[in-house]
């Protein structure tokens, strides 16, 4: 492996020279922070796991993506358990769109074994930049009670969601467009080992006009299934390393659970900016490494 940055090369040599115990502790601590910040800012921890493992710890990109996928399943399933019980999640919309995301994820995971790690790094960097941009510019809410898309009526996708004034009805728009964007979200998830939450929310919020809380919780509900579709392929290819996935999975999960407890009433604007800045730096680093061809 060729190393470009002297400072990063140094850190990698230092970290690689340590024992399994210390490596596990360091990766676990880093993953905890990623999970905590990801949960507090709503960006999800998965997005910074891969850059952290490759850039800071010198882990091979394929192992990093495998470990990230596993952590994504853990956090999304843990959080989805609570949301689905509270009645925010639109299970029918989720199920329908999971056809698109799982198909996409299978395609993405297949591609991951076909194209080089440098290309993957460049795509990853672009997705990171997009996510940072998205978190700086929150989407406007478009709750719709207009006539639903005909498919939404046929499939009984329209539903209600809890608000301070009781359960409010909403209708579902743009079903085919949402389905299409979901397929892309699935491809990126399988290719990069991320949840693609930002893109999923974009599809449901902007194209299908679901209430924001319904979009985010349904996205979360779908992430586990999407990631499981990719993870099966990564496992059978030998990309999931138990000793690396152990601290990543447990660290991110613990961080996300801690974040969920702190979240009530927390002011996240400054954190969000800070996290976005971190994401941008990681994106540029990955872009640079990808273009130089040495990830």
């Amino acid at each position: 492996m060729k190393l470009r940055h002297q400072n990063i090369a140094d850190s990698i040599d230092t970290i690689q020279a340590v024992s399994v115990l210390l490596f596990t502790a360091l990766v676990g601590g880093g993953s905890f922070c990623a999970g905590l910040l990801g949960s507090l800012t709503g960006l999800g921890g998965g997005i910074v796991i891969v850059p952290m493992l490759t850039l800071l710890f010198g882990v091979d990109l394929r192992y990093a993506i495998g470990a990230s996928l596993v952590s994504v399943i853990a956090t999304s399933s843990g959080a989805a358990a609570a949301y689905v019980k509270e009645g925010y999640t639109n299970v029918r919309v989720g199920m329908l769109l999971e056809i698109a995301t799982t198909l996409g994820a299978l395609g993405g995971a297949y591609l991951a074994g076909r194209i080089g790690t440098s290309a993957i790094a460049v795509i990853f960097a672009l997705v990171l930049l997009y996510s940072a941009y998205r978190s700086m510019k929150p989407l406007a809410e478009h709750v719709s009670t207009d006539t639903a898309h005909p498919l939404a009526d046929t499939l009984r996708l329209n539903s209600t969601y809890p608000t301070p004034n009781g359960f409010q009805p909403y209708t579902v728009q743009g079903v085919p467009a949402g389905f299409g964007l979901m397929a892309l979200a699935g491809v990126l998830s399988g290719l990069l080992g991320i949840g693609s939450g930002a893109l999923k929310v974009l599809a449901m919020d902007q194209l299908m006009h679901l209430p924001f809380k319904v979009s985010t919780t349904t996205s979360n509900f779908m992430i586990g299934v999407t990631a499981a579709a990719s993870a099966g392929i990564y496992l059978s290819r030998g990309y999931i390393d138990p000793v690396l996935a152990l601290p990543v999975m447990l660290g991110v999960l613990a961080g996300a659970l801690t974040g969920a407890r702190v979240l009530a009433g927390a002011k996240t604007t400054i954190l969000r900016r800070l996290f976005s800045a971190v994401v941008i730096v990681l994106a540029l680093e990955m872009l640079y490494n990808g273009i130089r061809g040495g990830v």
Binding site: V18, L21, L22, G58, D60, Y63, Y239, D241, L244, L246
Partner: peptide
């Protein structure tokens, strides 16, 4: 269990070898 048995060995995840077949299925 793993850390108790292998904790003091040297860590190396830098080179991609792929997991052995018995950890793939």
């Amino acid at each position: 269990l793993y850390l108790a048995q292998h904790g003091l060995e040297q860590a190396d995840r830098r080179v991609f070898q792929g997991e052995p077949p018995e950890l793939r299925g």
